[in-house]
């Protein structure tokens, strides 16, 4: 109950701050020196936030489609041999530093949102893929057996039984991926993607701690809210199936 109240307050604060940053100048003023501005005004914080969220959403949707697709593929009899390959691809995507991806992608794609999207997409594959795999391979054996025995075809079993049962785990994977991407997207501003990283970088360049703090604060609050939102969805699904706390 208290946690809910705090989340609501956080959401309220975030919205208020983005709609009218100047009203919160008093909050950040102590962090400035030499009469530097307390609030970043180069670009509106709201538009940076929306573009940041858009970028993350696009990358996570792409990761989800590819990772879930791969997860389904390697759990079918015909695709089983691709499992090691898929594992390698997603692991490399996770271990290859996003900064390096940016550096490599810029010469090919130029400055802007493109390289950031690629970096976030690769970075987000692993959690979704691994969770899809776990979800699809850890189904209760009697349910699988019953589904076959009832005469569901392979495709019907996938859509009507396996994916719904794996959904809470897949959602957990998407949640991790979204939160990681939300933080990582800030570095996209080094190659001119419009993200909240712009505020943080501006703060670092001009030694204005207030900018760094407000950029970090918005990203952090977004991450918490998205994390909690997904978790609520997951536990709703799990409760329905009677597997809560499993």
């Amino acid at each position: 109950m208290i946690a809910r109240l705090l989340l609501g307050l956080a959401a309220l604060f975030l919205v208020a701050f983005l709609l009218s940053p100047d009203s919160f100048a008093w909050l950040f003023r102590p962090l400035t020196s030499n009469n530097a501005p307390a609030i970043y005004t180069q670009t509106s914080l709201l538009s940076l936030t929306l573009s940041h969220l858009g970028l993350v959403a696009l990358a996570v949707i792409a990761s989800t489609i590819v990772a879930v697709g791969l997860g389904i593929l390697v759990t079918r009899p015909a695709g089983r041999e691709f499992l090691p390959l898929a594992r390698t691809i997603t692991s490399v995507g996770q271990t290859f530093p996003p900064v390096a991806v940016l550096a490599l992608a810029v010469p090919v794609m130029g400055f802007g949102a493109g390289p950031t999207l690629v970096a976030l997409f690769l970075y987000g594959l692993l959690p979704i893929f691994e969770n899809t795999l776990t979800g699809l391979t850890s189904q209760p054996p009697d349910v699988t057996e019953a589904a076959r025995g009832m005469g569901l075809t392979r495709r019907q079993r996938l859509w009507q039984v396996e994916l719904p049962l794996a959904l809470p785990l897949i959602l957990a994977g998407i949640r991790l991926s979204a939160v990681i991407s939300l933080a990582t997207a800030t570095i996209g501003s080094t190659v001119a993607a419009k993200t909240l990283g712009e505020v943080i970088i501006a703060g670092l360049l001009s030694s204005n701690t207030a900018f760094v703090a407000q950029g970090g604060l918005v990203v952090g609050l977004l991450a918490i809210l998205i994390y909690e939102g997904f978790q609520a969805l997951e536990s709703r699904g799990a409760r329905r199936m009677g597997t809560a706390g499993r």
Binding site: D142, V143, E145, A146, A147, R148, M150, G151, L165, G237
Partner: peptide, 21 residues
């Protein structure tokens, strides 16, 4: 075809195998 055959034959197992969702 197996899936057609199975729809004509009732099948009940230990632990019931009900779809939890």
């Amino acid at each position: 075809a197996p899936h057609i055959l199975r729809r004509r034959i009732g099948y009940a197992i230990q632990g019931h195998g009900l779809f939890p969702h």
